[in-house]
Nucleic acid binder design. Structure first.
Lengths: 468, 468
DNA sequence: CGATTTGTGTGTATACATTTG
DNA sequence: TCAAATGTATACACACAAATC
């Protein structure tokens, strides 16, 4: 005798009672999955409460719990105690970002490349490496986490960001994303929870989904994630880790202030979270932002995996990132590196090493900063910042948009107009809040002029849009 | 009122009733985990049956099931219905094989390298690549799964093994192990089961363990895994995939006969398994073994991930493998590649491409085959093959040993004598059978003389050992 | 061969925590 | 502030399947 709102309002999903086969929970889960992937249940739809559906199907409600749990593990739905169960915003699509098959007629303001103009400098260094007498030493199975002199160069590189570590507690891996994959597989188990900003790196969201690790979105302000909110969530549920990009968060361009770093570190220490610190933008912040003191790794060395990728700062095609970690995490991380990569290409690592040791890496960085500054200035011309400023040298910007246009419509129309952008929904670690943004990449066009054309199109579109 | 063997024989593990906190299942699982990792419960030890332990602790037996299940997920224990629950053979150690921190005084017959003498040829080609006009095109984010001409070269390369595919259904990734990691994450979920040979590639075992994928060991004979056994297991439990190395299984050097390939393919098709075909040794078999017809991919293109690594055949330090897959697996695999690697180094891929297109790769292969043949002949001098012969050009051999010496003792004593080898336990996908082997790598010494010294030490040791 | 031992899979009962109004 | 709505966590009952003797 169900007494509830669905007496008046029909349930959003009424699975056919006869379609149910034993085992019930599997049968229900796969029916629900079909419904969602076919688009019959739209993202955001509220599913019937467990007890409702159980009454309707005349089975115990915990059997529904189990069916829902299966779909939850696949990222199709999410649940909030007290509120209900809902179809995930990105349930029926993948939000992974990659530069595969991009229509060439479009100006790409979606994918964040790294001002690839500087690759000519890299090309020169490649030639230098191939002239080395020890070239064949770079071609065998040895030194899977990096050759000692390569590690030393990496440590020097990171010293300028404030990292103090030794060669035994660092490893060279195949890029930041690879480092994240290694850290997640090494240190977390399916079902574990990781705290993140409400908007976070889309590929991290997908990676976590793939590995069945749940993300817990934590609110923040202009200085970063809010420590009290993190504290609250840690007390409420069992959270195992936290993912942060302190130097310039992707996609919001927010920098975590030094005070906030210390406050967050206190909470992380108290609850013994594992901190994944993706510091790919350190080169834009350390030594530039007057507030910058040190990475969070230095505050919590024993429970942090510090990841310093060179794709944005030095060269995107050479897949090299440095991982730094505490002794207690060391064994598991090395293990995961061997199981996922065997080793990182010594050749790629050697070229990055050469660039660092010869000083060319610093040249590249200053060139990229210059390009980034010009691009940001240009962006400001079109879209003057309102509200708290983000990172002044960011390779992308976070543009608040108003109106009630759907993501799909906007992205499609912009593509027809000639530019690709990403909507904020793509970066949602949990369910959707009310406000909307676009992430505008500034580093992917071949020239400032092409960027200008792109921004022009965007401006035009948004102006028209507001007028409608 | 328990009536069972433990009335007379004490239970192998009696957790302290008072140490139990709620929730019981977590408490029991962590007590058990401690006991095992501290070495207090030796590998192979039979744990108390679920009902026994439940009686003893005065709780429901399914609560024990749950506690055991947690430890099972961590690979600490395994269970066989009807027989009982046992501590895993490799519970307290990692069996991952890598060339990290190897004592240099030892002759290494453990790790399988790839006759690194041929790397001089590779070094020459590296220089050619750096002279290319399009070098800077290799340094950006584009073409994450390989540049079209690189893919074409890969397809040509694999055509000589009998692979027919197109560029949309292949991807270049960072080595075979990386390909396996990608395939497992992309196509399987935690808790899924994959059939393997009883002895299989140790890093695959560890990788599966890390990802909480269960391996189901299937018996085989000299022609490979037994189709009837596979069929039986598929009917009994829900098996999702199968891992095979048809051209030369690691570590047993067994080749799957063409007839057996077809028989296995029939079972795989019937039960809709996903086949992971690691064909890293194809270059030693295709065109050489008269029985070789085609890879299993050609028999089951829609449900196979074919992996062709170049580490053994061409160069180990350049991390390049080709993955080939059917349309139905395509999306998930590409997705996983982007999430784990973002992209594979175009530079490494370009060097391999250059080697293939210039014909140097074939030179390297024939050089390696020659080295492999000499090494195998030498091995035969010391240890004449008894029983069915393995692969004649294998980079390692599988040496049956008798006696009741423990793995640990044997490996330690051999290391003291100056050689490193791996015991068969390291390659066990399930629990331990009665017979023992050593895997002897032939491809890791710097010269035939060094190999001879190593084999001499081994021979001496085993002779003395049998005399004892 | 059939009873017993032993692990597995599925559905259920109950206490609890959070959100909402 | 408290009750109702709603999801979560834990323990249990029972039918079943495989291995063993």
């Amino acid at each position: 005798m169900p007494v509830n709102s669905f007496d008046n309002f029909p349930m959003s999903w009424k699975p056919d009672r006869k379609a149910l086969k034993r085992p019930f929970y599997l049968s229900i889960a796969s029916l629900l999955e079909q419904e969602i992937t076919n688009g019959l249940l739209a993202p955001g739809t509220k599913l019937p409460p467990q007890r409702e559906l159980a009454d309707f199907l005349d089975i115990n409600f915990t059997t529904i719990t189990r069916a829902y749990r299966l779909c939850m593990a696949k990222g199709l739905i999410y649940a909030v105690t007290g509120s209900g169960t809902f179809v995930s915003p990105n349930a029926a699509r993948s939000i992974t970002i990659s530069r595969d098959k991009i229509p060439s007629e479009c100006i790409d303001l979606a994918f964040v490349a790294s001002f690839e103009q500087s690759n000519e400098i890299v090309a020169e260094s490649v030639k230098k490496v191939t002239d080395k007498s020890y070239l064949d030493k770079l071609l065998n199975y040895n030194d899977p986490t990096g050759i000692p002199h390569q590690k030393k160069a990496g440590l020097n590189w990171m010293a300028s960001f404030g990292i103090r570590a030794d060669a035994d507690h660092m490893a060279i891996v195949s890029g930041s994303q690879n480092a994240l994959a290694i850290a997640l597989v090494a240190l977390f188990e399916p079902g574990n929870r990781i705290a993140t900003d409400i908007y976070t790196y889309a590929n991290f969201i997908e990676l976590a989904k793939m590995l069945h690790i749940k993300l817990v979105p934590i609110p923040g302000d202009q200085f970063g994630m809010l420590p009290e909110e993190l504290e609250n969530h840690c007390c409420q549920t069992d959270i195992h880790g936290i993912f942060l990009m302190p130097s310039c968060s992707n996609p919001t361009t927010m920098m975590i202030s030094d005070l906030r770093k210390r406050e967050l570190a206190a909470v992380i220490r108290k609850h013994r979270l594992i901190l994944l610190e993706d510091d790919i933008h350190a080169f834009l912040t350390a030594g530039i932002d007057p507030d910058y003191k040190q990475p969070m790794y230095e505050l919590l060395p024993e429970q942090t995996v510090y990841i310093s990728g060179t794709s944005k700062s030095i060269c995107s095609g050479l897949r090299v990132a440095y991982m730094v970690f505490g002794e207690s995490l060391r064994q598991k991380i090395l293990q995961a590196i061997f199981n996922i990569n065997v080793k990182t290409s010594s050749l790629d690592a050697e070229i990055i090493t050469e660039l660092i040791l010869s000083g060319k890496a610093f040249e590249i960085i200053s060139y990229k900063k210059q390009l980034a500054q010009s691009a940001n200035v240009l962006y400001e011309e079109y879209f003057p910042q309102k509200g708290p400023a983000g990172h002044p040298l960011s390779f992308y910007r976070w543009l608040p948009i108003q109106g009630h246009c759907t993501e799909e419509k906007m992205v499609t129309e912009l593509e027809q107009a000639g530019i690709r952008v990403f909507h904020s929904n793509r970066f949602l670690s949990g369910h959707a809040p009310a406000d909307q943004y676009l992430r505008i990449a500034l580093s992917s066009t071949n020239s400032l002029n092409e960027l200008r054309s792109g921004l022009e199109i965007l401006k035009q579109y948004l102006t028209n849009f507001y007028h409608v």
